[in-house]
Design a binder for these strands. Structure first.
Length: 314
DNA sequence: AAGCATTTCAACCGCTTGTCT
DNA sequence: CAGACAAGCGGTTGAAATGCT
């Protein structure tokens, strides 16, 4: 025997909501509230809909202050950062984005954001995903706006070029706080951060491959089963991951404050299988504290990929 | 302009969680 | 404490919109 249906399937309408149904539901809830009982609501409101359907329609579309339309860069960054730390817990992620619903964010992630990040699959060898790269250097360009950037291996390191990347012109300004690169093959960016008080060459020291590939060759992040941590002894309890990252000055999965802190060689982050889990309060704290530095995530304007360069890992 | 392919996103499904009795 | 029930949640679906040839 299966699960009892939540409503009389034969007598409920399915499919898209009509404007009339929307008006009925909205009017009813604004007058009487939900009454704490979605199952009973459609009958009271005169709707031939399942209570679940009413709830979803209200929460995802009709309730006040729902934000529709394009996601901002900042929202992109928050989604990516949280996804990297807690995985597909859309309701928690949505709680950090006023006006956005979990359904909205889930759709946006599955249709757009994930694809952007998947671009990394094309250029980063799986053996190097999850690793820090350290201290590449590059030649100072003659002209910040249109030069070909050739990043050169530091003489003391054994660095290997892995792919060419291109840098959008508008980010290559001496005043630019963030120094972003687009992957030439995919037009998505890989982002280095520049600290305010340093020159270009000195600043380009660290970055971090944000994900790994799973068995299906999909890019995956921290989340449920493969988050990295970076304690010096390799241990990494769930409870302390965030604190450790705080101390380290960057947030798991993304290049960040390490540049400004000038901390050398954090080491390889792969092969730590501890999970990264945190509750809502931790997430809020994470965001409010600025850990993760949302200015240093992965995206840039896909159309601005005029320049090319080379970067290295070892 | 037509037909096909791909993308988007609203809505559904069913499992999990929380609450009440 | 256990069972019933409703809400919450995330994965999935499919129709509509859009893009491409």
């Amino acid at each position: 025997m299966g699960r009892a249906p939540c409503c009389d399937k034969a007598n409920v309408k399915k499919g898209p909501w009509s404007p009339e149904e929307d008006a009925k539901l909205k009017d009813f809830i604004q007058k009487f509230g939900t009454g704490g009982n979605w199952i009973a609501l459609p009958q009271k409101a005169g709707l031939k809909r399942c209570g679940k359907s009413c709830r979803l329609r209200w929460l995802n579309y009709l309730r006040p202050n729902i934000k529709h339309g394009e996601f901002s860069d900042e929202e992109d960054r928050i989604i990516c950062t949280l996804y990297a730390s807690i995985g597909s817990r859309w309701s928690i992620i949505a709680a950090q984005l006023p006006g956005r619903t979990d359904n909205d964010i889930k759709n946006y992630w599955n249709t757009k954001l994930k694809k952007k990040l998947m671009a990394f699959n094309n250029i980063i060898p799986s053996s190097n995903q999850g690793k820090l790269i350290s201290q590449p250097q590059y030649s100072q360009p003659d002209n910040y706006t249109n030069s070909f950037y050739n990043f050169q291996a530091a003489a003391s390191k054994s660095l290997t070029p892995i792919d060419s990347i291109s840098a959008p012109q508008n980010y290559l300004s001496p005043n630019s706080e963030n120094f972003k690169f687009s992957l030439s093959t995919t037009q998505y960016s890989y982002n280095y951060q520049q600290s305010q008080d340093q020159g270009f060459v000195d600043n380009l020291q660290y970055c971090y491959y944000p994900g790994k590939l799973d068995n299906n060759n999909m890019l995956i992040f921290g989340g449920n089963d493969q988050a990295s941590c970076s304690s010096s002894d390799g241990s990494c309890s769930k409870d302390h991951v965030i604190k450790q990252e705080d101390q380290m000055g960057y947030f798991q999965g993304f290049s960040a404050n390490a540049f400004a802190d000038q901390k050398p060689n954090y080491g390889i982050l792969e092969n730590n299988n501890s999970q990264l889990e945190c509750d809502l309060e931790e997430v809020k704290g994470l965001i409010s504290s600025g850990i993760g530095n949302y200015n240093s995530l992965l995206f840039t304007d896909e159309n601005k990929t005029d320049e090319r360069g080379m970067y290295y890992y070892y």
